[in-house]
Simulated assay, not measured.
Amino acid sequence: MTDSTGTRLPSLTGLRFVAAGMVFGFHASIEGVFADPGTSAAVGQAFSRAGFFGVEFFFVLSGFILTWTARRDDTRRGFWGRRARKIYPNHVVTWAVAILLALWAGQAVGWQVLPNLLLVHAWAPVPEVLNSANIVAWSLACEVLFYALFPVLHAGIRRIRVDRLWWWAGGVVALVFTMPLIAQSLPADPQVPTPGGPMSFYAIWFVYLFPPTRVLEFVLGMFVARIVRDGRWTPPSLGVAGLVAGLAYLAAFTVPYLYCKVAIALVPLALVIASAAAADARGAFSPFRSRGMVWLGEISFAFYLLHWLVLVHGHRLLGTTWGLLGGAAVLALALAVTVLLSWALHVTVERPLTRPKQHTDLPAR
């Protein structure tokens, strides 16, 4: 990953796999591979916020990287073409695999899978549509909106005076924190179980799944990129940023549920992204810059799209539960299989379609 001035940002590539791994941990923790209820509950509790943090990292990173690497001579058609080649081929392949696996498992496949294919399903608060085919693709519906809006958003943000960037960024953060309040005005029924008790499905959808709501995180990433690149802020070390993010994760267990899904992680994750970019720019130490981490980051988009299918259908194929060591071994196997399949998808589908006109603006998960 390189910016328009030639500065490489490999740490951000490596961090992408960390974020994808958090989503994997979340889904693995709810798959129910442990026979002991206490172990299952403890693992589920520990990873219950990990998926939220992982997805939000990607949304903020998208805005940051696209702004950091934006070129003035780029065209909207060229930009949208690169984004489409990055997202849709992998999505179509994993969508088709999800359909085949569902049929193999004896599940009904109806019209609900079509909005998933078109990446418009997150706009509808309809559970059977949101949960169709490859359910993790809901975040791509958000990314599609981000990319559609980026040329206009970037043109506007680029015109903002540098001395006002912090005020705009603060306003975006404030808006994110108001979303749970707005969500409480939505219909209370139907309700779904959450760690904090039953909650309106519509409220959760509005805060976590609705693409226009998630645009705010993307926009904050854009502002942070400008603030750092224009010299308005020197981020702290990656160690300090990581500590803040870790404390935010602990805090996510203490705040109301709607706030733990998005708001509580927003600023800490933006801090991690800014600190990683600054570390690469000045050559400071970063554990995410190694060849192995960068390679894992490069396949992380494919990993994200495949991991849920491997976990769910792999568990269905094996068809049992295990003790602590057995369950951990099964999850480690699922992780290894997902990495191998992700590498294959990246090499055979993603890389050939993006390399001919590759611009290192954003590997999009």
Results as ranks from 00 to 15, higher is better:
residue 199 M to A: 15
residue 236 P to H: 05
residue 181 L to Q: 02
residue 167 W to C: 05
residue 154 H to E: 14
residue 226 R to S: 06
residue 184 Q to W: 02
residue 189 D to R: 12
residue 155 A to C: 08
residue 146 F to M: 07
residue 144 V to A: 14
residue 177 F to H: 12
residue 142 C to K: 08
residue 163 D to C: 09
residue 143 E to H: 07
residue 160 I to S: 05
residue 149 L to C: 15
residue 219 V to M: 13
residue 217 E to K: 01
residue 202 Y to R: 07
residue 192 V to F: 09
residue 156 G to K: 14
residue 122 A to I: 02
residue 225 A to K: 07
residue 185 S to I: 10
residue 195 P to K: 12
residue 224 V to E: 04
residue 151 P to C: 10
residue 123 W to M: 04
residue 175 L to H: 01
residue 225 A to G: 11
residue 182 I to P: 02
residue 161 R to W: 04
residue 241 A to I: 12
residue 197 G to L: 13
residue 179 M to S: 08
residue 215 V to Q: 08
residue 216 L to R: 01
residue 212 P to L: 04
residue 164 R to W: 10
residue 134 N to P: 13
residue 126 V to H: 07
residue 226 R to Q: 12
residue 176 V to D: 00
residue 231 G to P: 11
residue 219 V to Y: 03
residue 133 A to T: 09
residue 132 S to D: 08
residue 205 W to I: 02
residue 199 M to E: 15
residue 236 P to K: 06
residue 242 G to Q: 00
residue 137 A to F: 01
residue 169 A to C: 10
residue 223 F to W: 04
residue 227 I to S: 07
residue 211 P to V: 02
residue 192 V to M: 13
residue 142 C to L: 04
residue 227 I to N: 06
residue 176 V to Y: 01
residue 149 L to G: 03
residue 237 S to A: 07
residue 240 V to S: 07
residue 194 T to N: 11
residue 205 W to G: 01
residue 219 V to P: 09
residue 192 V to L: 11
residue 218 F to E: 03
residue 215 V to S: 10
residue 199 M to C: 07
residue 132 S to G: 10
residue 192 V to W: 12
residue 190 P to K: 09
residue 141 A to D: 07
residue 182 I to R: 00
residue 187 P to A: 01
residue 165 L to M: 13
residue 226 R to P: 06
residue 166 W to V: 10
residue 180 P to T: 04
residue 216 L to D: 03
residue 193 P to N: 11
residue 198 P to Y: 13
residue 200 S to K: 03
residue 164 R to I: 09
residue 231 G to R: 12
residue 125 P to F: 03
residue 172 V to D: 05
residue 235 P to K: 01
